[in-house]
């Protein structure tokens, strides 16, 4: 995994970046309303299928990007039942949190896999974000795969020195992680520094107004897609707040 963007010509690829950004944000917002796993499960699969059909991204490829998140999922599923009472409520909460996290991941990755970097920046800027912020956001998103393979390399290097990350008590393991985290932080800071030099040397931040070589324009298709997204969002709000669906009350029995 070197880069998220997948060169293809699908419906999602051709969509205006603004529509995709708004869609992702509304999607994430919608997911926050619901916590019932019976609702979240189908949604997760719906996103997968949409990514396959509308974005042309193989299901396996979408799932493989979620792998790093599985650490958090495992952690959640393990700890919520322990600290919640009754325990099965904790489990429901853990499952619900995990499904939401994975769906967030899917949506965000789908945006990144179907949108070029410069379109993404342009999208953020045309939505009203300052250029610097749009660029920062985009670089941050793009940096994830780099960081991921860097962490992989560092782990390989330390494993070659006899480090066994998956052995020992939790506290011991945490201490072992420093052998990975310190080189990772050092290398990241170095990259950030190099990046800032690269930006400065191209006179970034010199002119007040920016012009773009290629601008974007909403087509009829984009408006239609936006309408569908907004309608879906409104339906979700209606289902949740007027009909009270898709939400289970979670409370501590004893506090």
């Amino acid at each position: 995994m070197r880069e998220f963007y997948v060169r293809k010509s699908s419906f999602l690829h051709s969509l205006d970046p603004r529509v995709k950004i708004v869609g992702t944000l509304l999607g994430i917002l919608t997911l926050m309303f619901f916590n019932d796993p019976r609702f979240l499960f189908p949604v997760f699969f719906l996103i997968l299928i949409a990514g396959r059909i509308l974005g042309g991204i193989e299901v396996r490829r979408q799932l493989s990007l979620l792998k790093p998140l599985l650490v958090i999922v495992a952690f959640t599923l393990f700890f919520w039942p322990l600290i919640y009472s009754p325990w099965y409520m904790g489990l429901i909460f853990g499952v619900s949190f995990s499904l939401r996290l994975l769906s967030f991941g899917l949506l965000t990755f789908l945006l990144l896999m179907t949108t070029r970097q410069r379109e993404l920046i342009l999208g953020f800027v045309r939505l009203g974000l300052p250029y610097e912020l749009g660029l920062t956001l985009t670089i941050a998103l793009r940096y994830i795969p780099t960081l991921y393979s860097l962490a992989q390399t560092i782990m390989d290097a330390q494993r070659s020195r006899g480090l066994e990350l998956d052995r020992g008590k939790p506290l011991v393991r945490l201490k072992k992680m420093t052998a990975v985290l310190i080189p990772l932080i050092v290398a990241s800071l170095k990259t950030a520094h190099e990046l800032s030099i690269a930006l400065e040397s191209r006179a970034f931040g010199y002119g007040k107004r920016r012009t773009f070589l290629r601008d974007i324009e909403m087509s009829r298709k984009d408006y239609a897609a936006l309408a569908v997204i907004v309608a879906t969002f409104l339906i979700a709000v209606y289902l949740r707040y007027s009909l009270g669906l898709g939400h289970v009350a979670i409370y501590r029995a004893s506090s």
Binding site: A157, Q158, S160, R161, L181, I182, P183, V186, A187
Partner: peptide, 13 residues
């Protein structure tokens, strides 16, 4: 088998 990686900084901590 000892393995010295391409970038030495990747292992110093």
């Amino acid at each position: 088998v000892g393995y010295v990686f391409q970038n030495p900084e990747h292992m110093f901590f």
